[in-house]
């Protein structure tokens, strides 16, 4: 039947819907190189005119935090002094 074949790279696709917004992850494509990756990303994820800029990044180039260490990495949600409601300001000062 079919011979053994090597998989092409996986690329993560980010689309910026319009100026002023950030690029947002929307999925991935397979492609052998960056030129074909960006063409495929456009065909797959922008065929309804969803956006004005595309980034593709090799999936293997993304460095991610360890999910098992989630608590260590994201342990600062107890720092209540980082939030505006921590500080008392008289009501009649108005919006601040």
């Amino acid at each position: 039947m079919t011979k053994e074949e090597k998989e092409t790279c996986l690329w993560e696709v980010f689309i910026q819907p319009k100026n002023g917004l950030s690029h947002r992850h929307c999925g991935s494509v397979h492609a052998s190189d960056r030129e074909l990756a960006i063409l495929s990303a456009r065909n797959v994820y922008a065929r309804r005119g969803e956006g004005q800029s595309i980034w593709v990044v090799k999936s293997t180039d993304i460095v991610s935090s360890d999910p098992d260490k989630k608590d260590e990495v994201f342990s600062s949600d107890d720092k209540i002094y980082r939030h505006p409601t921590f500080y008392d300001v008289p009501d009649d000062v108005g919006h601040m």
């Binding site: 079919t2 011979k3 074949e5 090597k6 092409t8 492609a31 052998s32 190189d33």
Partner: peptide
């Protein structure tokens, strides 16, 4: 599907080689 895949082998091979 098999025909499409087999007839496309040279294309995918070429793409990898070019990269």
């Amino acid at each position: 599907k098999q025909r499409a895949w087999n007839e496309g082998t040279w294309v995918r091979d070429a793409a990898r080689e070019h990269a």
